[in-house]
């Protein structure tokens, strides 16, 4: 069994990382009180921006093009998420409807642009990001094989962002204010916090992170933009809930989903897993999330004001 886990762990980690960063983006948004079911669409935006930037640059600077692509995705993702922020924060629109509109606009618009640019709706990049063994650490028995061999540099980038997000959200005044906006915006407002500004920042962070997640999918395992994130954004949303809106919980949930999905993908070739029907493995994360929702329903840690527009006049 351990052999199997060691064998699949590089793939499972590669699958986990985009989910993790996207769910982390969702964490910022929901902690500030804005439900963002547009994560899927924001990932697609990141995928398109990343793939487009990289194909334009990779013939000139083959190595750095990937990093420029990731950066471009972050910037465009943050800007695109302003659509959601404007609708939800400034206009008090229904956050779920706006999120759906974001998903639909992202999918249709990027495919539209891709068709204009390449003729087909797909954009392929030539070179993916290389996998590297971490020196010294990869020689540690078991752990070295599990975590430090064949790892992408983006994995470490995302883990640093995870640590940074935890620190910012839970150890700084800024984070406290942001969370206050999601729990009790009126209290935050009377304490002098600019709720609108906080929420704008949080939504933009969610856009930047989700788009980075999408671009990481492109530069690591997929290599091709095709107009969809295949439900990864929704899975990230599930991980956010399953992780009960906490960074460590999200890490656990996404790793769990990452391993579950990878096991489902390789189950055909691994004899130990071939007996389990694929349908059970594939639906597993969603069923587990439904069960988690029921289990946590009494003690849910959801930000209290998430989904509610902030109206200054209403106390």
């Amino acid at each position: 069994m351990l052999d199997v886990i060691i064998l699949i762990s590089p793939y499972a980690i590669a699958y986990t990382i985009p989910l993790l960063i996207t769910a982390l983006g969702g964490l910022f948004s929901e902690r500030s009180g804005i439900v963002n079911i547009g994560l899927e669409g924001l990932m697609v935006v990141g995928m398109f921006t990343g793939a487009f930037t990289i194909t334009k640059l990779e013939t000139v600077f083959p190595g750095t093009a990937i990093w420029i692509g990731l950066l471009a995705a972050i910037i465009v993702g943050a800007i695109f998420s302003l659509l959601h922020a404007f609708a939800c924060i400034t206009l008090n629109a229904d956050q779920v409807i706006s999120g759906i509109a974001i998903n639909m606009i992202a999918g249709a618009l990027t495919t539209f642009l891709a068709r204009n640019i390449t003729g087909s709706g797909n954009i392929q990049i030539l070179y993916s990001l290389g996998r590297k063994n971490i020196p010294i650490l990869s020689d540690i028995p078991v752990l070295g094989k599990l975590f430090f061999t064949m790892s992408y540099p983006t994995t470490w980038l995302v883990l640093v962002l995870l640590l940074g997000s935890w620190f910012i959200l839970f150890k700084t005044p800024f984070g406290l204010r942001l969370r206050a906006c999601g729990e009790h915006p009126h209290a935050a407002d009377s304490a002098g916090v600019n709720v609108h500004r906080m929420r704008y920042i949080a939504v933009m962070v969610s856009g930047a992170f989700s788009a980075l997640g999408g671009a990481i999918v492109i530069v690591t395992y997929s290599g091709e933009f095709n107009g969809t994130a295949a439900g990864l954004g929704f899975l990230a949303l599930a991980a956010l809930i399953f992780g009960q809106w906490k960074p460590l919980g999200i890490l656990g949930a996404t790793a769990f989903f990452g391993f579950a999905s990878t096991i489902a993908n390789v189950s055909q070739v691994v004899p130990a897993l071939a007996q389990i029907p694929g349908i059970l493995l594939k639906t597993f994360p969603y069923v587990v999330t439904l069960i988690a929702l029921v289990v946590f329903s009494k003690t849910s840690q959801a930000p209290q004001a998430a989904g509610e527009p902030f109206d200054k006049g209403k106390r």
């Binding site: 404007f86 706006s98 509109a101 606009i105 618009l109 495919t111």
Partner: peptide
Amino acid sequence: IPPEIADTIIATIIYFSATSIL
């Protein structure tokens, strides 16, 4: 014009319906 224009128009209409409060 790529056919995705129809989906884009529909998506934009949803966005404007959502913000119809304006």
